[in-house]
Computed example of a mutant assay.
Amino acid sequence: MTPFYSWRGEDLLLDCHLQPGASRIGFAGLHGERLKIRISAPPVDGKANSMLLAFLAKSFGVSKREVVLVSGQTSRQKRVAISAPRQLPEELAIQRP
């Protein structure tokens, strides 16, 4: 199985499956080969994307401007780039190169 993440230099790329409108926010294991993330914001007017980027920034110890939505603007399947994460959430078991 391919991991849901990859490294591009110091940057971490995450392949995510977003579940907007969830009752609670957080990582929810894997959905196929993607990391499932629950977000309480609805999928309208970019609210779910904004909440996703803020959640990932907090989880990886970076500012919001260091988290970029690479692809999947209007899809549940997203790719996100995190510039030089300062911390890696233990529950994800991400290994540095």
Rank of each mutant, 00 (worst) to 15 (best):
L56N: 01
P3H: 05
P97T: 13
F55W: 14
C16R: 01
I25N: 05
R65M: 03
V70Y: 13
R34D: 02
K64T: 14
Q19V: 14
L88H: 03
Q77H: 15
L30Y: 15
G46Y: 00
R24F: 15
R96C: 11
A41M: 05
G21P: 07
K58L: 11
V70K: 15
P85R: 00
G32R: 15
L52P: 02
L53C: 07
Q77S: 15
S75L: 12
S71A: 14
Y5Q: 00
L14D: 02
Q87E: 13
M1R: 11
R86N: 09
A57G: 14
W7K: 13
P43C: 04
E90K: 10
S6V: 00
P43Y: 00
A41N: 07
L30S: 14
A54V: 03
S59R: 09
D11Q: 06
L13C: 08
S75Q: 13
A93I: 11
R96E: 13
L13F: 05
I82E: 01
V62C: 02
R96V: 14
L35Q: 01
I39T: 02
G29C: 05
V68P: 11
K47V: 04
K36F: 10
I25Y: 04
K36V: 06
A28D: 12
K47H: 12
C16M: 05
S23C: 02
G29M: 06
G21H: 14
F60Y: 06
A84P: 00
G9H: 06
D15A: 14
R38I: 01
D11F: 02
R76Y: 03
E90Q: 12
L56H: 03
S40Y: 07
A84K: 15
L52Y: 04
G29Q: 11
L14V: 04
G46Q: 03
R76S: 03
A57T: 06
G61W: 01
Q95W: 05
P42F: 08
A84D: 08
E10K: 07
L88C: 07
I39N: 01
A41Q: 02
L18E: 02
A54N: 05
M51S: 14
Q19E: 12
K36G: 01
G26M: 00
S59L: 07
I82T: 02
L56C: 09
L14A: 02
D45Y: 13
R86L: 06
P89S: 08
